[in-house]
Amino acid sequence: MKADAMARSRVIPPLIGFGSLALSVLAFEVLIRLNVISKFIVPPPSEIAMSFERIIVEEHVLQRFVATGSEVLTAAAMLTVVGVSIGVLLFQVDILRRATETWVAAMAAAPIVLMYPLFLVIFGRSPWTIIMIGFVAALPPVILKTIEGLAGTRRVLINVGRSFSMSESQLFWKIMLPSALPTIFVGLRLGLIFALINIVGVEFLINFGGLGQLINELAERYDLAGTYAAICFVILVSIIVFALTERIERWLTPAN
């Protein structure tokens, strides 16, 4: 019973989580100082923390963040326009949907990001390679969630529209699309996160662009503490994006 009460408390679980994190960081620091772990493989956490300043001032991490961010936003804009449009098209033309929905689902399972050498040949070593990979890799969830949202419009809402003798296009714009928006947003959020993951990954792989390239560069310079700090920075950024979009999604979802 006591453990149950502790689990329900608002303070104790975060404290345990954060405490263990801090303890393991401390343990690493001690083990590295004692030479149990070589500091040429894992730099001491204190050194990593120190190099944060360096990567912000010397490596222009903020400009790189803007570069990556604008790539992600371009991909997201393309996803919203193209992905949602394809979803609407497939929903409206039933035969097309029945023919291709399983294909779209299969593409969601395919390792699309592995096509990056192909995109390199087509678009060159330019931001467009990176943007297009993010866009294509994130397309399937956006399409699938758009179809799911439109198909899930409650019968009664459509009947209300029909009783007002709405035209098909009014029915779509005034009833089906608004009611599908929360689900479509789930798809867009998934798409945005997929795009972010793939964009940073491809930046790292082709050594071009923003944050991903920074990690590659620091690693090639054998700047270990800097590499670890840059990785921490990227993780921080993706966690913030994830948490932020989660907030928006919760705010959009109607309370039941």
Binding site: A3, I16, G17, G201, I231, I239
Partner: peptide
Amino acid sequence: NKLLGKSFEPYLYYLGPTPKIIFFPVMIM
């Protein structure tokens, strides 16, 4: 375990959707 779940699952949940390939230089080390 509710207590452990509430303490550590948020970390997994938020670390899950981060790009993993960026750990590759560290993994090489």
